[in-house]
């Protein structure tokens, strides 16, 4: 069980990811922009993992990851970006900025489970 943060400007995505994660027994904190995510982290949220969309109003997901990696508390946190199948260059970019990996939209049960197993202790 872990605490996971989801950042996405689409409420639908947030909802579906929340319900998927909760099904695996994780707790979820949602943010709808990168700025919102940073606020919530400053407010004391300590997620064990972060999943963020790439394109959002304001800061992008890649910028968010780059920013969080500077912060000692989030140096080692697994962070995944949500991409579409065709965004190979985006994935590379995200990896460079410090992302651990990616999830391909639409994210299904199996994909999420595999990723969590790979990245979270007792995931």
């Amino acid at each position: 069980m872990a605490h996971v943060m989801i950042v996405d400007d689409s409420p639908t995505v947030l909802m579906s990811m929340e319900s998927l994660l909760q099904r695996f027994g994780h707790t979820v904190v949602s943010a709808n922009t990168a700025e919102d995510a940073v606020d919530k982290l400053r407010g004391g949220e300590e997620p064990k993992m972060l999943i963020t969309d790439l394109h959002m109003p304001g800061k992008s997901g890649i910028e968010l990851i780059g920013f969080l990696r500077q912060h000692p508390a989030h140096r080692f946190t697994p962070m995944l970006v949500l991409t579409t199948d065709s965004q190979q260059d985006r994935r590379d970019q995200a990896k460079k900025a410090g992302a651990t990996g990616w999830l391909t939209k639409p994210v299904d049960h199996k994909q999420l489970e595999t990723a969590l197993q790979k990245l979270l202790p007792n995931g």
């Binding site: 697994p78 962070m79 992302a99 990245l119």
Partner: peptide
């Protein structure tokens, strides 16, 4: 690797 959130041994074990 640690600074991108990787835990390689986890990946290996799984």
């Amino acid at each position: 690797a640690f600074f991108t959130g990787d835990d390689p041994l986890r990946t290996v074990q799984s």
